[in-house]
């Protein structure tokens, strides 16, 4: 993944003010950004996905310019072709698993049918062992099934990159280790570039070819280091 970010954003909430100034370049296929909550990690992903508009700077991904304030380029989220895995998955509660996965394959005004037979959806139902629950609503799924459904929904359109927002924080510890392994294997098989943000050093140890540390809106150190070193450093932070 060729990722080139350099942007600023100032957020105000009442008297509080938060400055986000991110500058990073990476060719890593697996980039982890580690930071405590409130450090601006989610905003970083939202800016790449087009859900938050920076005040200035640019965002380039895989050779395409997604945002460039100077050149007045600001692709809407619909045209950025990135996949976004939300922290609590954001599955559509009124659609079954099959419809959720097929959601992005239909661009019109109607949702996919409850018993659609899209080949790509069939593939992911099998790959993630979701066939048994294909006609169930998200509320009826287990935590792992929810995450697999959200991943399948994100990957079905073959995105440029996979953005993951704290993907394991909603899972209990046993399942967390299992889903980490699953995502690890999946990423190696699909070779889809991924950017994962987390506050959990273990995520960085498993996924971080390159680990960056974000603190109060600033990238503190960039470069390729051992994840363990970063994790140690992170643990020392108050």
């Amino acid at each position: 993944m060729q990722l080139d970010l350099d942007y600023r954003k100032t957020l105000r909430a009442g008297a509080r003010r938060f400055d986000l100034a991110v500058g990073l370049r990476s060719d890593s296929q697996r980039l982890v950004i580690l930071g405590p909550s409130g450090s601006g990690k989610s905003l970083l992903l939202k800016a790449i996905a087009g859900l938050m508009r920076p005040d200035q700077g640019h965002i380039r991904l895989g050779g395409a310019t997604l945002f460039d304030q100077a050149a007045r380029i600001d692709l809407p989220p619909q045209r950025r072709e990135v996949a976004y895995l939300f922290q609590d998955y954001a599955l559509f509660p009124h659609l079954n698993v099959r419809q959720n996965i097929a959601f992005g394959l239909r661009r019109g005004l109607l949702n996919p049918r409850p018993r659609n037979r899209e080949p790509a959806v069939e593939h992911w139902l099998d790959a993630f062992q979701l066939r048994a629950v294909a006609e169930q609503l998200p509320a009826q799924l287990s935590g792992g099934q929810r995450q697999r459904t959200a991943l399948a929904r994100a990957l079905v359109a073959e995105p440029r990159a996979l953005l993951l927002d704290e993907p394991f924080s909603a899972l209990d510890p046993l399942l967390r280790a299992h889903m980490r392994r699953e995502l690890d294997e999946l990423q190696r098989r699909l070779r889809v570039p991924m950017l994962l943000i987390t506050h959990d050093p273990e995520d960085a140890e498993v996924f971080g070819d390159q680990v960056l540390y974000l603190r109060e809106g600033l990238i503190e150190q960039a470069g390729t280091h051992s994840a363990a070193g970063y994790a140690a450093q992170y643990r020392e932070q108050p």
Binding site: A49, A90, F92, P93, F103, L109, R153
Partner: peptide, 15 residues
Amino acid sequence: QLEQAARVLGVRELG
């Protein structure tokens, strides 16, 4: 967030 998820999946505003 559900609306944002739909946008990222490529669905236009009316959709």
